[in-house]
Design a binder for these strands. Structure first.
Length: 599
DNA sequence: CATTTAGATG
């Protein structure tokens, strides 16, 4: 009878071999191959035990591989135990330990191990440095990053792409974009990873336009993007909100046959939603084979920011049907959708459901949605009661939502309460002073408005400059209040003049409550006419053929007067306006806005 | 025997 051929290259073989100690023929090479096939910590431990009984553990390659495999399964306790018992260690052993600790996020021990490594007199190498650089990923640890950067230069390792790419990544994660750029510019061989890190860094630090420029430069330099690059580019597009660019990126992804895996697909749902097309987002969603809880939550949020709360709610049972359990972020999306569509009862039900059915304790984000939901609906007393009775710690977002609700309903007493809390939490954020000031202005309390202004001046706070931009012919045009820098500025202002005359005939009265200063009405109206969102709208009307949807984006919340203005534009011209503000989308059509005037 | 980059939160 022919015996089946023995396969030595599997964990099970090694484990069987353990029961047959005669199987001494396993050499280090096959041992390592066997290790790679272990599926869980339990199997690794059995092979480890066998390595000890056969003395194979004395082989440094075997021991290092064991360390590596333990680390790969996040079994750092096992790895540390082995590491501390190893009689000899080389750079690989140290690197694997440092890397493993960094990966599971145990930064203190990672750093401690790295220091011990340096003290042991070993030379740091190009493998250890990228690992230890992972420890530095916030503004506090950037000092250590600088130290390591210095070490890199002293050791001459900056020539290594892995080391340089890790340095670039470190600076980006710490928010030091200029330093990242410096290292990046000096690289000789800029690799795919360092390009990708630069692209995501710019998107995260508020310059997504530069991300897209870098993406083009990367391709020009002959580097072919991979899935990860595409995710970061899609993320940049979402930040930018540029529909035209989004379509180009989408076409590129299709042309290059990138498979729509769950991460890329989810990023694209978010991109289309934030570029103003919930329909396109839904198409991506429907076309995805694999969906996880993040995919579902993103689609619900997409409906939420477009004010289509009911559709977000419809997805919930479908998600359960497909076997996905909601998590806390799913509930943030759901509650957000409820609040932006005025679905008070539904929101309440989900708020209780999350605790009762899914045993998720609502956190400050969920409370914020509830405050927003109740506040918009005018239930300010109920909202403040919820705030005062909750055991959770209240943050800026929560009080900010409440203050916003007080503004809508003109409740000065509660607004002052919210503002007091906010100014304690964040005394240097000018937005809250402005908001409170607007509330005073609306009530005609000009003395209080003046006080707020004085306070801001004495603290040297400035209003965050508002800017609005519009994408025309694949180019981005940006406007600030009173802006005259645009080459077609003259035409834009003429257009605004014509529009305002037409609108006034249609019954439009400028709502001067939205001007901070106590100046006479005519002058106030003058300020209003040059708000950045009006300039961008006027330019959109000028530069695109009739009937084209105008898509604009603002970095702050839309001004109330501009909101009225755009509603009227959509009634006197055959235009739809899709407007993204810092908070949500407004779809203006035939005189109405999808937000039903709550925002 | 080892190395870096990825998606959702008023």
């Amino acid at each position: 009878m022919r015996m089946p051929r023995r396969r030595f290259f599997s964990a099970s073989t090694a484990i069987i071999a353990e029961e047959y100690p005669g199987a001494y023929y396993l050499n280090p090479r096959s041992f390592i191959s066997a290790l790679v096939q272990c599926r869980n910590t339990h199997e690794i431990r059995r092979v480890h035990a066998y390595a000890i009984t056969t003395s194979m553990i004395q082989n440094l390659g075997v021991a290092n591989k064991l360390l590596y495999i333990y680390a790969g399964h996040k079994a750092l306790t096992d790895a540390s135990a082995l590491f501390s018992r190893m009689e000899q260690r080389d750079n690989v052993s140290w690197s694997v330990m440092v890397g493993g600790l960094a990966k599971v996020g145990d930064y203190p021990r990672c750093l401690e191990t790295f220091r011990e490594f340096v003290r042991s007199g070993s030379r740091v190498d190009n493998f250890t440095l990228p690992f230890v650089l992972r420890v530095c990923r916030d503004t506090e640890s950037v000092r250590l990053g600088l130290e390591i950067h210095h070490l890199v230069y002293k050791s001459g390792l900056h020539a290594d792409v892995f080391v340089s790419a890790a340095l670039v990544d470190m600076y980006v994660k710490c928010g030091h974009l200029e330093d990242a750029r410096k290292v990046f510019d000096k690289m000789r061989n800029k690799d795919l990873v360092s390009w990708t890190v630069m692209i995501s860094g710019h998107a995260e630090c508020g310059n997504p336009e530069e991300s897209l420029v870098l993406f083009d430069q990367m391709r020009e330099s002959g580097i072919v993007p991979d899935k990860v690059t595409m995710v970061t580019v899609v993320f940049a597009c979402a930040k930018l909100g540029a529909m035209h660019k989004a379509k180009i990126i989408h076409e590129y992804i299709e042309k290059r046959n990138f498979s729509l895996n769950v991460i890329l697909g989810t990023a694209m749902i978010d991109m289309y939603a934030k570029c103003g097309s919930v329909v396109a987002a839904r198409e991506i969603f429907d076309g995805m084979k694999e969906k996880n809880v993040i995919t579902w939550s993103s689609m619900m949020l997409a409906y939420g920011i477009h004010g289509q709360g009911r559709k977000a709610l419809e997805l919930f049972p479908e998600m359960l049907q497909s076997g996905i359990r909601p998590n806390r972020i799913t509930f943030v999306s759901i509650l957000y959708a409820c609040s932006h569509a005025g679905l008070v009862e539904e929101g309440r039900q989900f708020f209780y459901l999350m605790g009762r059915e899914y045993l998720l304790d609502p956190d400050v984000k969920h409370y914020t949605c509830m405050i927003d939901l109740l506040g918009r609906a005018g239930k300010l007393d109920e909202a403040i009661e919820l705030i005062e009775n909750t055991p959770i710690e209240k943050d800026e977002g929560l009080w900010g939502a409440f203050l916003g609700a007080c503004r809508i309903h003109g409740n000065i007493g509660l607004a002052e309460k919210a503002a007091k809390a906010l100014l304690e939490l964040s005394p240097r954020n000018s937005g809250y002073y402005v908001l409170l000031s607007n509330i005073y202005a609306k009530a005609g309390r000009w003395e209080d408005v003046a006080k707020m202004r004085e306070l801001m001046t004495s603290m040297r706070l400035k209003k965050t400059p508002g800017w609005t931009w519009i994408e025309i012919n694949n180019k981005i045009h940006q406007f600030s209040v009173g802006d005259k820098s645009h080459p077609q500025s003259k035409e834009i202002y003429e257009m605004l003049k014509i529009l305002s005359e037409k609108l006034e005939l249609a019954g439009y009265v400028p709502d001067t409550d939205f001007v901070l200063h106590d100046v006479d009405e005519e002058l106030k109206a003058g300020f209003l006419y040059t708000h950045s969102e009006k300039l961008a709208t006027a330019y959109g009307l000028l530069a695109t053929p009739e009937g084209t949807t105008i898509r604009i984006i603002k970095n702050l919340r839309v001004c109330g007067d501009c909101h009225t203005f755009m509603k009227l534009i959509s009634s006197i011209t055959p235009r739809e306006i899709v407007f993204r503000d810092a908070n949500r989308f407004h779809h203006f059509k035939e005189g109405f806005c999808s937000c039903v005037d709550y925002w």
